[in-house]
Amino acid sequence: MSTETIKEIVLPTRQESLREAYGEILAEIGQEDSRIVVLDADLSCSTKTATFAKKFPQRFFNMGVAEQDMVGTAAGLAIGGKIPFASTFAIFQTGRAWEQIRQAICYPKTNVKLVASHAGITVGEDGASHHCIEDLALMRVLPGMTVIVPADANETRGAIKAAVKYKGPVYIRLARDKFPVIYEKNHLFTIGKGDRLVEGGDAAIIATGLMVSAALEAAYALLKQGIEISVVNISTIKPLDKELIISLAAECGAIVSAEEHSYIGGLGSAVAEVLSEERPTPLIRIGMPDRYAFSGKPQQLLEYFGLTAANLEKAVKQVIKKKKL
């Protein structure tokens, strides 16, 4: 690939909270659409649904520490014609209430939006009981579920707006920590479309969530070493942008997937499924190993488990070698 076609790699310079963006956008669209109602399970100050609650107390329902009841109640509100957003921490939402999500939301195709915060290991100090490294697998396997992982606050805003317009079950994964800002303020989000942020033909990193900015950093470092890679943000894990993944495989011939989630069942698995059936291509999956983490600062945990730009850089070099086998 000629250097002219390579997009300039712009590294993020500031950070913004996804959950705060969620709270703000909810309160904003709640003004325009009275069908929007919000439920929380005693974590509204953390998930930031409290911003909506303050503005629209009549349309906010705190369900207490009862995630299963919250999901069922959200389903009932949706059947009644509302557009419910239900929020709590990712592990309690997708783990504790999984069967309610299956029976009351996915099977009858109820128009409920589940927006979970505190996903991944960047929950940090609370420890493994509160880390959530399984939600993408748990949600992806449900027929009819749309699974979205925004890469920054602006993509979060776009995804929430898109979820309101889309009729059907949606799961949106947010995090505790601030993420580097990649997109412009009024970023238009299209469900099911991946976004190629950097073009390069030596390999491609397919990343989601926090790992998108790490992938940009890795691409920047690799470019300096003369290795030109593509970086793609797959923010919709399901339905997956298969075409983009297949064309990346065709162009680059080597792929690294990157996610702050178990390397089993999430983005890496979804990419592996497409590649093995459509275009077998060397793949290295970067994610949480098959184990629980522990308490620590988010950055310390990310480094311990290799969810860093440096490790992605290493993985790219490894996968390029596989390409030549």
Partner: peptide, 24 residues
């Protein structure tokens, strides 16, 4: 109007319908 089969879930859904009715 409401699917069921897995026990224990209907009352939560009914509550959601009741809240929706109240709002409307």
């Amino acid at each position: 109007e409401v699917s069921s089969g897995s026990l224990g879930q209907g009352l939560s859904i009914a509550n959601g319908l009741a809240l929706s009715h109240r709002l409307d």
